[in-house]
Computed example of a mutant assay.
Amino acid sequence: MSADMSPAEPEGTGRVVFLIRVPEDRQAAFLRAYEEIRHLVADGVPGHLRDQVCRSADDPEQWLITSEWDRLEAFRAWEATAEHRDLVRPMRECFTEARSLKFTVVAETAKGERS
């Protein structure tokens, strides 16, 4: 680990990853539910920066939702609210499996960036 990548608790942006399974017969409902809430979250939830919904190229029932937050605590605060549970309920009803992972970004590299 380089000197600038300390193992101490970082204060960078937060990344939340949901690995989910959505049966083919529920995928249209899942995408409709995502469409219904995506701008509400993007425009109205403090700390939210962006999100993506992705479908596996190898398994059509495996999906990935990622979201980026100005800090992980912003997501945790929103996740604890009844508003969050109510808003995402239509999406969650389409899942047969779900796993949530939360990370703090400690380093990032973009094309053309050199320190």
Rank of each mutant, 00 (worst) to 15 (best):
V22T: 09
P90Q: 13
D59A: 09
R38G: 10
A74I: 02
S115H: 05
R38T: 06
I65P: 00
W63T: 04
T81S: 08
V106R: 14
W78S: 13
L49H: 00
I37T: 05
M5Q: 14
Y34N: 14
E97R: 15
L49T: 04
D70G: 13
G12N: 06
H39T: 07
E113D: 06
R114V: 07
T81E: 02
R85G: 02
I20V: 15
M91C: 08
E11V: 06
D25K: 15
A3K: 13
G44K: 01
S67D: 10
G12R: 07
D58P: 00
L72E: 05
T109K: 11
D51T: 02
S56H: 05
V106E: 03
R50E: 02
D43M: 06
A57G: 07
E24H: 13
R76A: 10
D59R: 10
S115A: 12
G44A: 09
E79T: 02
D58A: 12
S115R: 14
E79S: 12
E97I: 09
S100D: 03
E73Y: 09
P60L: 08
Y34E: 13
F95D: 07
V88Y: 02
D25L: 06
L101N: 13
L87V: 11
A77S: 06
D43K: 12
T109Q: 03
E73G: 05
L87S: 10
F75N: 05
K111A: 14
E36Y: 02
R21P: 02
T66Y: 00
Y34H: 07
A29L: 10
W63D: 00
I37Y: 01
D25M: 13
R76K: 14
P90C: 11
E11K: 15
S67W: 07
R55H: 01
T13G: 14
C94Y: 01
S6W: 00
E61V: 12
M91Q: 09
E35Q: 15
L19K: 13
P90W: 04
L49V: 14
D70E: 15
W78Y: 07
D59C: 00
R85I: 05
E113S: 08
G47N: 02
R26C: 04
E35L: 14
A33Q: 05
L72W: 00
T109F: 04
T104P: 04
R114P: 01
A107Q: 04
E9L: 09
R99W: 01
M1K: 12
K111R: 09
E11T: 14
T96R: 08
L31V: 12
L101H: 11
R38N: 13
A80H: 07
L49P: 01
C94K: 01
E73H: 06
M1I: 10
Q52V: 05
P7S: 11
E36M: 09
E108D: 11
P7I: 08
H39D: 12
E79G: 11
T66C: 00
R38P: 03
